[in-house]
Design a protein around this nucleic acid. Structure first.
Length: 933
RNA sequence: AGGCGGAUAGCUCAGUCGGGAGAGCGCUGCCCUUACAAGGCAGAGGUCACAGGUUCAAUCCCUGUUCCGCCUACCA
């Protein structure tokens, strides 16, 4: 390809779009159930349908794509199932914001019209995220793109709901739940984020009803809820208070007397004042305590978390306080002021506490009493605990297992109903006549504008009480099982929708066609790996495991790879408000997709959050460029015949690089098996840059100019063989540049995407070549170092000689002479000798810089050190010999004394490393004397 | 409050067999050597958080301490 030969720097833009389109057009990403390979399936964590790609998506999907491309190249039958999530609250909030800017609300629009608007918005922006994933190179099977609210998945949702209900695992009831007063919906426990806040602790006097001079002191952080107290608890064994149990206290600011009860669970003897107020409608612990003592629940707030006038009246609150309609914080200060004015506020102290906030809009959540739908979770959680305990599901890194098990064992029922409109509406209906008869369903009617048909001229407004009896079915019931009425108008569908995570929990099988028994389901379930962030381990992963086991009778996936959170360079969580968001699209634009992918892979070490610094991305952009230029070099030198030779006839550089490549292939495959993307990436980086480019390409340069020499023909063959393999090896990490280069290289097949991934080649390993290389490297590096340290001019010839401990090393060095001379720059003479002393050396050294060194290429350093450690105590004579052996590099120089003096400091450093630079012939002789046996 | 993880070069981090302290980026010096200055070569820089212990030998294993992060639960 001519672009390769012309451009000095790699330009990702023109490459990326072109190849992605080709891959799509040729259907490389499409999975087929008839493919002969062993199935390998990943289901994507579905991004919000109206969202856009953030850096966490980029990491998550890069990792998945690396696994998918790698397995595809290994010949597995690969399916990467893509899809998007309807993201109930999040999406509804976005559309509501749009409405607000138009000066209207969803209530004004009505449910049906509002949903139309959301669908419109989904149609408009729904493919943004898909396009962005494609830009990232994600090789999903886009033909199978699913959406959590498409028809098939909705069927699955209804099926699951009905079956769980029939099994008694879904129930409706009035419980205290977390309520977001802004989103106006219930939230599940894990949808509440806790944030440390500085608050106040108020100590309040509750006088006894029959003895106003005696009072219990209760402490609370939420004095406004005291108006809903229905008891005060003390510990039954508390000598201070136990005699008060059974008496009553006068609830301040009201005309109500409340009982004093004994409760050992709620009251901690060692904490606080010893008396605790019980407010069952506004606190989770108090709710349970209220059940234990059969206490009434007084809910003070409406759904906007404002004081409800009717409730205040019921609670017999002093009307002069004017609390009706006041929001929480205002109500609090009114109550506190009133208490203070009446001398009932004992003291106020600072107190730090964790405030619960809505994970979508960060509004402070309010415990709220309301009828909701729940999943009875324990029967589902038990098998899910077992699956992980028994290793049928592996969490990687393993450290999360305890976290998972701990959470699952202590799991609470899952509140699945949401009072929003966007989502899967709960498949439950109520028979209006039955409900009215039983008083569990309240109907109010009001006239609507004229001009409408008679039947719709009255708009019914229906309120469901906690006791309302649902008819749960996959579709609207034809007749009521109780009263047998069959008028569709008389069935009222539960207006709530399901928690978004309910449909996500079914994702691994619903996307494969369940409840139909599709071939896809048979082929790809259980899926192979799930790649996900830690933040949704409980939201999503745990629930998929429960639902998969329940409805498929098998785990939904074998491995769960849990990756870290991406933070900014300072380790701060990225957020729009902080302005520290790294936009992956911007990064791809500036540095190229491959650079971003490689960066993320390199930083993905387990158990540690990723701090993303822009310099890192730049570094890997440079890496892409390095690969690009290596390709240019190779293509420029490919003219002429290529010849494959028997392994034993390969040149030294060829044998060496094949051996190193083989080691890299082995380790990259191993690291990918172990989900160590960071180590696979760094191994590739090091091999390609510092072995292949820095040494191999330099080593072979002299062999190329004479186009028809056997040496050139063999070298060209190895050049293509190795570089082509490198493209395949690197492809899962950097799909675009590798395809562009691979296409330009001599190759068979139509795309690197579907080429086999490199595997080990036993006959490429060469221990000899590797140890010869270490001698070569030692010589060349020593020569270069000496030159730099002595400011020896770059062009001027260097003479150096080597003392080799073994004859074999001498031979090796002799064979490497040409390479050493070439890489040492300038005219270099290599004179291997196997005996000290030799006066010839000194004559050779008469001109210019002379570097001497001891070469011990075959000393197994680690072994030697181990030996020294073991024997030092015993004072073995061998130790000294070994220590001497370790001094494997030395310098000798005939540099003028003034030069040496000038560099005294540096020389000391050299000596520390067991290298000695000599300034005179006498010193050289001295060393020789010491060294000779 | 409990649980988990982390502390190694200026920065970001590897170091999975207990024996060599490493990489990238940044920094310094020399080099535009015909693939690449987004480059090449060389170099400086570390009490492996602290204190004990086990061992011939500890960044690594054990105990404790300090600091940081996360998760879960919150005591009114």
């Amino acid at each position: 390809m001519s672009g390769l030969q012309l451009e000095k720097t790699y330009d990702p833009k023109q490459v990326e779009e072109r190849w992605y389109q080709v891959w799509i057009d040729r259907g490389y990403f499409h999975a087929s159930v008839t493919h002969p390979g062993q199935p390998y399936c990943i289901v994507i964590p579905p991004p919000n349908v109206t969202g856009s790609l953030h850096i966490g998506h980029a990491l998550n999907n890069t990792i998945q794509d690396i696994l998918i491309r790698w397995r595809r190249m290994q010949g597995r039958n690969v399916l990467w199932m893509p899809g998007t999530d309807h993201a109930g609250i999040a999406t509804q909030n976005v559309v509501e914001k749009q409405l607000m800017s138009e000066g209207t609300t969803r209530e004004a629009l009505g449910r049906e019209k509002f949903l139309e608007r959301v669908w419109e918005w989904k149609a408009k922006s729904g493919d943004t995220i898909v396009r962005q994933l494609q830009r990232l190179g994600a090789s999903c099977d886009w033909d199978r793109l699913r959406f959590t609210m498409d028809e098939g998945l909705s069927t699955a949702v209804r099926e699951v709901f009905v079956r769980l209900y029939e099994d008694g695992l879904i129930y409706r009831g009035e419980r205290l739940i977390n309520w977001c007063p802004r989103c106006l919906t219930a939230l599940s426990d894990i949808e509440v984020e806790h944030e440390d806040t500085r608050g106040k602790m108020y100590h309040i006097r509750y006088p006894l009803a029959d003895d106003p001079d005696t009072a219990l002191i209760v402490a609370t952080t939420r004095p406004e809820t005291m108006l809903g107290d229905t008891a005060v608890a003390v510990h039954p064994e508390d000598p201070r208070y136990r005699h008060l149990i059974g008496k009553t206290a006068r609830l301040p600011l009201t005309t109500r007397d409340i009982p004093i009860v004994g409760d050992a669970i709620l009251v901690d003897l060692k904490f606080g004042t010893g008396a605790v107020k019980i407010t069952p409608a506004h606190d989770f612990n108090d709710f349970e305590a209220g059940d234990r003592h059969n206490l009434a629940r007084i809910a003070l707030f409406d759904r906007h978390a404002r004081m409800d006038g009717f409730a205040l009246h019921e609670a017999q609150v002093d009307p002069s306080l004017n609390l009706a309609g006041k929001p929480v914080l205002q109500a609090r200060s009114i109550v506190v002021d009133a208490l203070r004015a009446r001398g009932l506020l004992v003291r106020v102290e600072d107190h730090k506490m964790a405030l619960g906030k809505c994970y979508r809009c960060k509004t402070v959540v309010e415990p709220h009493l309301s009828p909701q739908w729940f999943v009875k979770i324990r029967p589902l959680a038990e098998p899910a605990v077992k699956a992980v305990e028994e290793g049928r599901i592996r969490l990687i890194p393993e450290a999360w297992v305890n976290n998972y098990l701990g959470w699952m064992r202590d799991i609470k029922d899952w509140c699945i109903s949401r009072q929003i409109w966007w989502g899967h509406q709960i498949p439950a209906w109520y028979c209006i006549p039955c409900g009215q008869r039983a008083g569990t369903l309240i109907v109010t009617s009001r006239a609507v504008g004229s001009g409408e048909t008679l039947s719709s001229a009255w708009k019914r407004s229906i309120t469901l009480t906690p006791k309302a009896k649902p008819i749960v079915a996959k579709s609207a019931p034809a007749r009521c099982p109780d009263c047998k009425q069959s008028n569709p108008q008389d069935f009222y569908r539960d207006p709530d929708v399901l928690d978004t995570w309910f449909s996500s929990a079914l994702w691994p099988f619903s996307t494969l066609g369940w409840p139909e028994q599709t071939p896809e389901l048979k082929t790809f379930y259980p899926t192979s790996t799930l790649v996900t962030g830690l933040d949704i381990l409980f939201f999503w992963v745990a629930r998929m495991i429960m639902m998969g086991l329940k409805f498929m009778g098998d785990v939904p996936f074998r491995d769960v790879y849990i990756h870290a959170l991406v933070r900014d360079a300072e380790g701060q969580k990225m957020s729009k408000s902080k302005g520290n968001v790294v936009d992956p699209l911007h990064v791809m634009e500036q540095y190229g997709t491959d650079a971003l992918r490689f960066t993320l892979a390199s930083l993905a070490s387990p158990g540690r959050d990723i701090k993303l610094a822009e310099e890192r991305i730049e570094g890997y952009r440079n890496f892409a460029n390095k690969v690009w230029n290596a390709a240019r070099f190779i293509l420029l030198n490919l003219e002429g015949p290529r010849e494959q030779v028997h392994p034993s006839n390969r040149s030294f550089p060829d044998r060496w690089i094949l051996s190193r490549l083989n080691g890299t292939i082995r380790s990259v495959n191993q690291e990918l098996e172990a989900y160590r993307f960071d180590r696979a990436a760094s191994r590739l980086y090091h091999f390609i840059w510092h072995e292949y480019c820095d040494w191999y390409l330099e080593l072979i340069k002299p062999a190329l100019p004479d186009q028809n020499s056997p040496e050139a023909r063999r070298t060209r063959h190895t050049l293509v063989e190795t570089f082509e393999a490198i493209q395949r090896l690197l492809h899962p990490f950097m799909p675009f540049i590798t395809e562009e280069i691979w296409q330009a290289l001599p190759h068979e097949g139509e795309s690197v995407v579907i080429q086999p991934y490199p595997g080990e080649q036993p006959d490429w390993d060469s221990k000899d070549a590797e140890s010869a290389f270490s001698i070569l490297e030692q010589c060349v590096t020593t020569a270069r170092t000496a030159r730099v340290l002595l400011n020896y001019p770059p062009g001027k010839p260097v003479t150096f000689f080597a003392w080799v401990g073994h004859e074999r090393n001498g031979k090796i060095l002799e064979n490497l002479q040409g390479h050493v001379a070439h890489l040492g720059r300038g005219a270099v003479q290599v004179i291997p000798v196997d005996r000290w002393p030799s006066s010839n050396l000194l004559r050779l050294a008469a001109e210019g810089l002379t570097v001497g060194m001891v070469v011990e290429g075959d000393v197994d350093l680690q072994k030697a050190l181990a030996l020294i450690g073991r024997q030092r105590e015993e004072g073995a004579a061998e130790v000294q010999r070994l220590e001497a052996k370790l001094e494997n590099v030395e310098f000798a120089s005939k540099a003028p004394p003034d030069v040496v003096a000038e560099h005294q400091e540096r020389l000391k450093v050299l000596q520390r490393d067991q290298a000695i630079l000599l300034s005179s012939e006498e010193q050289l002789r001295e060393i020789m004397r010491q060294r000779s046996p």
